[in-house]
Each structure stands twice: as structure tokens, then as C-alpha cells.
């Protein structure tokens, strides 16, 4: 045992750090190549092509798929708008001097960040109408979605905006106050413009999350006209007994989310260079 370690140690130290790094990288490449080769050999390519790459099935989805694609965008934007309209005031309450506002906002954020989006959507779609019979959401399913997904989103948005507000240097707030600006004036003129710039990247990420969460809308029971992308793809999957619609649906999601992700990264970098 002792002898073995003393033997091994000089053997290792005979390699320089760079050689060891090169060796480690070589091993990793070899493993990746091996894994890919095995997968390629094992996979039944004919079968995969048959399940996912049926061109006529894909072509058949058009142009109807655009309705659901459009609905996905609309649901996302509605939920985001609701999230902003509620989230920004909640963020302001979280940094308020008035303690009850802070308590309320903290509870609000913890509740809606802690509950699954699906559950909140159910609550809005079914729980609330049952508890308050006769309640009508403005815009029907659109209103339900705005609130149902927007509540969850508002909690995340509130947290992002709060972080943005607190990232604005306190000295600038004191400078504004010492010039005679009121608390509200300072918030509007000095803090929020800088905070909102800081939170643009996290808000863009929130849009990406919402785009995906809009797939939950199916639980509200949707018609062809109000169907979103996931539901549409799943219906097609059932109708055709083929997975090609999932691939098409997935690609359409990426068509939305990848540009948003790139945009978020661009905006983040722009902040760095400011």
C-alpha cells in the first residue's frame, strides 16, 4: 500500500500539467465519440424516421397550426401583461416603508411562487367560478389565462423588479431626496428607469418560461379556435398515431423561445458594456 502510493506519485508528476490536461481532454472526446457511435448503431433509423419525419403529416398540419401558434403568443403576452401590471406594484410594496405593504407583498410572492402554475390555473378556471357562481372573466378563456398564468408570473416579475430596484445605488436616491424630490418622484424619475433597465434580461427569461407554461392552458378546456400549440400537436398525434406533429410543435416553440433567449443574452451584454 505504502509502496504503491510512493510508486504512483512520481509516475504522475512525470507528466506536466499541460500534458495531463491534454490527456484528460482526449479521453473525454473518445468517450463522446464512442457514445454517439453506439447510439447510431443501436438505433433503428427506419423506425425513427417513420415516427418523427413523416413529411405529409407535417404538411397536413398547415395552415391550421398557425392558429394555435398565434394563440400561444397571445396567451403568453396576456399573462405577461397581467404579470407586469400586478408584479410591478407588488415589487414597490416589497420595498415600501409601510410594513403592512411589505408583509402583504411577501406573502403574495411566496404563495404564487410556491404554487405550481397548473394548480393556480385550475383555481382560476374552476375553483373561483365554483366559489363565486356567476363570475365572468373578461374575454372568456383569454381572461382566465391572463389571470391564471399571470398570477404565477407576477410573483416572479415582482421578485425580479424588486432586485432591480435594490440594485440602484442608494446614494442616487439620497441625492434625489436632497434635491427636494418626493419619495414617489424619486421612484419615478431616478429608481424605476434604472431598475427596469436592469430587469430587462430576467423579464425576457420570464417570457420564455411563460411561452412554455402556456401549454398548460389545455386544462381549461379549449376549442379549435382557442387551442394553443401543445394541445394542437397532441391532437394531431392522436389523430395520426404518429409523432411528427410533436416535432413540428417543438420546432415552432423553439422558433419563439430561441430568439427570446438570444435577445436576453444580447441585452445582458449591452448592460455590461454600458
Amino acid at each position: 500500500m505504502d509502496a504503491a502510493t510512493t510508486d504512483a506519485a512520481p509516475a504522475r508528476s512525470r507528466m506536466t500539467a499541460r500534458q495531463r490536461r491534454r490527456l484528460a481532454r482526449g479521453v473525454q472526446y473518445a468517450v463522446i465519440v464512442a457514445v454517439v457511435a453506439v447510439l447510431a448503431a443501436v438505433a433503428d433509423w427506419g423506425r425513427i424516421a417513420e415516427s418523427f419525419f413523416q413529411f405529409d403529416i407535417a404538411a397536413d398540419m398547415f395552415p391550421e397550426v398557425w392558429t394555435s401558434f398565434w394563440n400561444t403568443i397571445v396567451y403568453t403576452l396576456l399573462a405577461f401583461a397581467f404579470g407586469m401590471v400586478v408584479g410591478v406594484p407588488i415589487a414597490l410594496m416589497r420595498v415600501s416603508e409601510f410594513a403592512p405593504y411589505r408583509w402583504f407583498a411577501t406573502v403574495y410572492v411566496e404563495v404564487f411562487r410556491g404554487l405550481p402554475a397548473l394548480l393556480v390555473l385550475f383555481l382560476v378556471g374552476f375553483g373561483v367560478p365554483q366559489a363565486f357562481p356567476g363570475i365572468q372573466y373578461p374575454g372568456g378563456v383569454y381572461g382566465q389565462v391572463a389571470i391564471g398564468l399571470g398570477l404565477t408570473s407576477s410573483a416572479y416579475i415582482a421578485e425580479s423588479v424588486r432586485a432591480g430596484i435594490q440594485a440602484v445605488p442608494k446614494g442616487q436616491v439620497e441625492a434625489a431626496r436632497s434635491l427636494g424630490m418626493s419619495r414617489t418622484r424619486t421612484m419615478v424619475t431616478v429608481v424605476l428607469p434604472q431598475a427596469l433597465r436592469i430587469v430587462v434580461p430576467p423579464l425576457t427569461n420570464e417570457l420564455v418560461m411563460l411561452t412554455k407554461d402556456s401549454s398548460l392552458v389545455f386544462v381549461l378546456g379549449v376549442t379549435t379556435a382557442t387551442m394553443e400549440l401543445s394541445k394542437f400537436a397532441r391532437n394531431e398525434l392522436t389523430d395520426t398515431a404518429n409523432a411528427t406533429p410533436l416535432l413540428v410543435g417543438g420546432l415552432l416553440y423553439l422558433l419563439l423561445t430561441i430568439p427570446l433567449g438570444l435577445l436576453a443574452r444580447r441585452l445582458e451584454n449591452r448592460e455590461d458594456h454600458r
Binding site: 445605488p169 441625492a175 434625489a176 436632497s178 434635491l179 427636494g180 424630490m181 424619475t189
Partner: peptide
């Protein structure tokens, strides 16, 4: 506080505003 100016160790200029706006906006708003 309008009648009492204050200058800080860390300057505390409004970093999102131009130099001119740092002087113009307080006059306009206050």
C-alpha cells in the same frame, strides 16, 4: 430640501441621465 444643497463623497449623479439632464430634470420636476 430645495433650499439645502448636498454634495456627497460618491458624487451620486443619476447614472441613466446625461450630464445636462442631471441638472435639467431636477429643475423641471422639483
Amino acid at each position: 430640501r430645495r433650499d439645502i444643497g448636498m454634495v456627497f463623497q460618491q458624487f451620486n449623479l443619476f447614472s441613466h441621465m446625461t450630464i445636462l439632464d442631471n441638472l435639467v430634470i431636477p429643475q423641471r420636476r422639483v
